[in-house]
């Protein structure tokens, strides 16, 4: 049951990314390109994504537990430190260079596998470097 829910959520997420045009790195980069032919599409994707989630957070406050698991396991929303800020800045640099963030990159493995493979492999490499160098 939990596996099926996760698969459904992932598939809906991947379908949404693809329909929204976010599987095209040049469209994503065009959103970040304020001094070029700016493309605001990504703002509509983020705005659209926040509508169901804002409702979901309201429901989350009213219920004791998720419908298919024992408890909510949610990140702390307060702790802000230098590591977090540096990580965010680095992510933005990579996002700008490649026009790809993790979701669209992994979804693109079904669309343009040869083109996106270098990014996905390097991304896993970057995660591995973090895993073995940074103590959390």
């Amino acid at each position: 049951m939990r596996i099926m829910i996760a698969l459904l959520s992932g598939a809906l997420f991947g379908a949404g990314l693809t329909i929204s045009g976010m599987a095209d790195p040049m469209r994503v980069r065009a959103f970040l390109d304020l001094f070029g032919a700016w493309d605001p599409t990504l703002a509509f994707v983020m705005g659209g994504g926040m509508i169901p989630m804002a409702l979901a957070w309201i429901v989350q406050k009213q219920v004791d537990r998720p419908f298919a698991d024992h408890a909510f396991t949610l990140p702390d929303t307060r702790a802000i430190d230098g590591k977090l800020a540096l990580g965010a800045i680095l992510f933005g640099i990579g996002w700008g260079i490649g026009g790809l963030c993790p979701g669209p990159a992994i979804a693109s493995l079904a669309l343009t596998p040869a083109a996106v493979a270098p990014f996905v492999l390097a991304m896993l490499g970057g995660m591995a470097i973090h895993r073995f160098t940074i103590k959390s």
Partner: peptide, 25 residues
């Protein structure tokens, strides 16, 4: 710009995230 496709895709992404939150916490 593809505002309609972006919004529809975004709503699907948000629904997917809502399923993760309310289904699996």
């Amino acid at each position: 710009a593809q505002p309609i496709a972006g919004l529809i895709g975004g709503l699907m992404i948000g629904l997917a995230a809502a399923i993760m939150l309310l289904g699996l916490g």
